[in-house]
Design a protein around this nucleic acid. Structure first.
Length: 861
RNA sequence: GCGGACGUGGCGGAAUCGGUAGACGCAACAGACUUAAAAUCUGUCGAGGGUAACCUCGUGGGGGUUCAAGUCCCCCCGUCCGCACCA
């Protein structure tokens, strides 16, 4: 028996798969189709062990589905635009394209060495002009149909990266990548009208279209979209307080949005956001107000933590009238009102809203309770420091008195609508998607600015708008904007002088439709419709939970737009979603604060030092592996020593796939031992499949226990793979292997069945080893083409089973009984069992509970 | 603050419907092989007590429902994630 040598075996099978084009998806096939896709990687330079885990999971599914008779599409590509390439260009004085393509070459090579069942013929990078040309086509289509527009707006400006960030890229007031405090700037930006689709994006979360998605992701998206129903109404300005207001902006009054119109009778003030036009109007001649506004805007974005709870306001000269009662309400500028949500103005009901209550306390405003809690006494119920937001009955509320909150809301809306002061409306937290980035390394937005014609689309015949090859990356800012020639072009409409749009797309645009391009590449269109209809939606999408909101929401939105434009027929891109956990590791920094690779650090007794110099090292928190913090573990050393199979096996062992795992070096040995054990088990059976005809019925009925183990394993492993329980599938394979080892004397037929099944079951996990075993056993063709074994139901049934017997809920004995034994027999046997007799001796048996096939419990005292 | 998930041996984790807690792996320990080491193989491995058979305790803490609770209910503690002045 020769020792298994992955260094020889693994490359051999990879080249054989390659020659046979084993994993290329069929364009025409009568098999059912299955599209499995992992979120494509950013080409950061090297793959790390987290990538291995991610792609190994998809590979298990791909190989399992292929063996199960599907025409499988499992493609790979590169999310290749983005800032790191540009930063690298700045630092190394090279070009982002060069850096990116070099990284892609290196990572493709590494991924290929993992033995993934990928159709590499469909590979592309989003920075390929053929891809981004089609993206520009899509955009022109969207623009033409009114899904894209420009608007002047405040943006989140990252002062370090010198770029605009989406709201969702701002975390705690800081840039998601740079960690620098974000500033506000006003720029003219491109937007996609994702809010138009908010309702359908939300509805699909609940109506079964996303039944294959995890609940937590759906919940996050639901919260992100943040739909609320309420009333938009105008509070009329009181006589004599509005004569200086610009009439076109404030005609009819001050517009506010509320979800609680039932509390209108409790209103004691109105407030507008610091950046509301009304505030701006009065600030014009009021330096004090100007200062207040400036202060509020600053804290609003960057230092919310500092003055978190403090509600501050500035009283305006204007007053408004109450819609139902003859009284006036003061109007404030308040730092806790947000311009971006609703109308940027509110009415305050201190009794029913904590913020309003805090504000009322501070400025001495009336606090009139209007909701009486169910068990409260209206004579004594009072609001002190806590607003009442619970259920109850309306009171102190004129025509709403006695109504529930729900009925009160409806009645108030009806009344306001009848008065013509406003109407019931729906609001979303979700805002339109700003897609402009002031960067070089992205897909150019195909538009031309002309003094005469305004903004003109680039004609399709002129696409792609390619990035200029020469660019200056030596200073921050947008290299496209300062390029000497690139942006100067003729206006396609009038032929006069024009300038190109120098913004490029947010890279989330690139990743919003790549799955469609993989499935349906076409030379002259974004997608080939027939192929897209065949493959989409993606049957199984796999990726990190960190993309639960942004990427997944944008991709869902894009799919809807592409459907509206006739490119696709589905509106949901991903039928089933699995969010795998991340591989995490401690971060390490040396005395200078520089990040260190784990392989350069030695940790002993909780203290860390550099492997080379012995200098002390600070152990940082456990974080997701990322290139920037260098807490990455390279799979190369592992693959070099133990082979790709051991690395794959190890990454899928032990931990449930959805959970984060902390990387430890310790366990790889176990995976390597497994590889050796399987090889040692298979080797002595060389050529067995040539001797035995497994298609004929079993030779000997006496081998039932071996066959039961085999078929039990098949059933279990199959079920576990189907349900993404790879760790359990692996545990079952170990169990089966243990059984095989403990039953050396079985006939050839049963042994052949066991070993063939074992080989097939490990094939999705350790594909090279499986092929080598298959060949050794004398199997036909590739094991990856062999049909997945089917568990025989007759062999899963047992004749006897072992029942636990409890006395007063504590296990005292075990019984082996026939599966079909009746309760009386079981009860009799249980009562006479040795361990049981000891515990009921001298007691009276009060009750015997027999749960067939599960347990017996004897109650005695 | 709001919403969600989770808490099981030294470690990762298993336990499908409320039914024998700790499968499987890692680490550790002991033994075999070896001049020796590595590799491999065999065995032990929740805690406490007992020569042993076996007994007691045990799934973050406290209470409850039940013949029976890791699992269900209530309260508390802790960890993680998402959102965070959303009117």
């Amino acid at each position: 028996m020769s020792r298994y040598n992955p260094k020889e075996v693994e490359p051999k099978w990879r080249s054989r798969w390659n020659e046979a084009a084993c994993f290329n998806a069929q364009t025409a096939s009568d098999k059912p189709n299955y599209y499995v896709l992992e979120m494509f990687p950013y080409p950061s330079g090297r793959i790390h062990i987290g990538h291995v885990r991610n792609y190994a999971m998809g590979d298990v599914i791909a190989r399992y589905k292929k063996a199960s008779g599907y025409n499988v599409l499992h493609p790979m590509g590169w999310d290749a635009f983005g800032m790191p390439a540009e930063n690298a260009a700045m630092q190394t004085d090279s070009h982002p394209a060069k850096w990116t393509y070099a990284n892609i070459d290196a990572m493709r090579d590494q991924l290929k060495r993992m033995g993934l069942a990928i159709d590499w013929t469909r590979e592309f990078a989003t920075c390929d002009p053929e891809y981004y040309k089609q993206q520009q086509c899509l955009f022109l289509d969207f623009w033409r149909r009114g899904f894209a527009y420009r608007k002047e707006s405040y943006v989140n400006w990252d002062p370090v990266d010198q770029t605009v960030l989406a709201n969702e890229q701002v975390i705690d007031g800081k840039g998601w990548r740079s960690d620098a405090p974000v500033e506000r700037r006003k720029l003219s930006q491109w937007f996609l009208k994702i809010t138009d689709e908010a309702d359908d994006l939300l509805a699909a979360l609940d109506d079964g279209r996303l039944a294959g998605w995890p609940d937590n992701v759906k919940l996050m998206q639901r919260n992100w979209i943040g739909k609320s129903k309420g009333l938009t109404m105008k509070f009329r300005f009181a006589d004599g307080t509005s004569q200086h207001l610009p009439p076109h902006e404030f005609e009819g009054g001050l517009e506010v949005y509320t979800t609680r119109p039932d509390t209108l009778f409790g209103a004691s003030f109105c407030a507008v956001a610091p950046d509301h036009p009304l505030a701006a109007h009065y600030a014009h001649n009021d330096p004090e107000l100007q200062a207040f506004i400036a202060e509020s805007l600053k804290t609003g974005v960057s230092e919310e933590a500092v003055e978190k709870a403090e509600k501050r306001g500035f009283l305006l000269p204007a007053q408004v009238t109450h819609p139902f009662e003859d009284r006036r309400l003061p109007v404030y500028v308040a730092n806790f009102v947000l311009m971006q949500y609703g109308t940027g103005a509110i009415f305050g009901c201190p009794a029913g809203d904590q913020r309003d209550l805090d504000f009322a306390h501070k400025y001495g405003l009336d606090i009139l309770p209007v909701v009486l809690p169910p068990d409260a006494d209206r004579a004594t119920f009072k609001i002190d420091d806590e607003a009442y937001v619970g259920p109850g009955t309306l009171y102190n509320s004129g025509f709403l008195d006695g109504l529930s909150i729900e009925d009160g809301i409806a009645a108030a809306i009806t009344e306001i609508e009848a008065m013509g002061w406003g109407e019931g409306t729906t609001q979303y937290r979700l805002r339109d998607w700003g897609v402009s980035r002031q960067r070089y390394w992205g897909c150019p937005i195909p538009a031309i600015h002309c003094d005469k014609c305004g903004i003109v689309p680039v004609p399709e015949k002129d696409l792609p708008v390619k990035l200029p090859e020469e660019a200056d990356f030596s200073v921050p800012g947008n290299p496209l904007d300062r390029h000497p020639t690139w942006k100067h072009v003729d206006c396609p409409a009038c032929g006069g002088k024009g300038t190109r749009e120098t913004d490029t797309f947010d890279t989330f645009v690139d990743s919003s439709w790549y799955f469609a391009r993989f499935a349906a590449p076409a030379p002259d269109a974004p997608v080939d419709k027939t192929a897209a209809d065949y493959w989409l939606p993606v049957d199984q999408y796999i990726g990190g939970i960190e993309h639960a909101i942004l990427h997944l929401l944008y991709a869902r939105y894009f799919t809807r737009l592409m459907k509206k434009c006739g490119y696709l027929s589905v509106d949901e891109p991903f039928a089933n979603l699995f969010t795998q956990g991340m591989v995490v590791h401690h971060t390490f920094r040396d005395e200078n604060g520089d990040w260190l690779l784990p392989e350069d650090v030695v940790v002993e007794k909780g203290a860390a030092r550099r492997a080379d110099t012995g200098a002390p090292v600070t152990i940082g928190p456990i974080e997701k592996m990322s290139k920037s913090k260098r807490n990455v573990v390279s799979p190369e050393a592992i693959a070099e020593t133990y082979g790709a199979d051991a690395a794959r096996w190890f990454m899928l062992s032990d931990s449930p796939p959805e959970r984060d795992v902390e990387w430890t070096d310790a366990g790889v040995d176990g995976a390597w031992r497994l590889v050796g054990r399987i090889w040692d088990t298979v080797c002595p059976a060389k050529g067995l499949l040539k001797k035995v005809d497994l298609s004929r019925p079993a030779a000997d009925a006496a081998e039932k226990s071996m066959r039961q183990a085999t078929h039990g394993a098949i059933a279990g492993v199959t079920d576990d793979i189907e349900n993404f329980r790879f760790n359990k599938a692996i545990a079952r394979i170990y169990e089966f292997l243990n059984v095989l080892k403990k039953t050396p004397d079985v006939d050839d037929w049963a042994r052949a069945e066991a070993l063939a099944s074992l080989t097939q079951m490990i094939a999705p996990f350790t594909p090279h080893l499986a092929e080598e075993c298959w060949e050794t056993l004398g199997g036909n063709g590739f094991v990856c083409d062999a049909p997945w074994p089917k568990a025989n139901a007759a062999l899963l049934a047992r004749d006897t089973l072992v029942l636990g017997v409890q006395v007063n809920g504590k296990r005292r004995a075990e019984l082996e009984v026939a599966v079909d034994a009746d309760n009386e027999t079981v009860e009799k046997l249980a009562l006479s069992a040795e361990g049981v007799k000891r515990h009921i001796d001298g007691k009276t048996v009060r009750k015997v509970v027999v749960v067939p096939g599960r347990i017996v419990n004897i109650v005695a005292n």
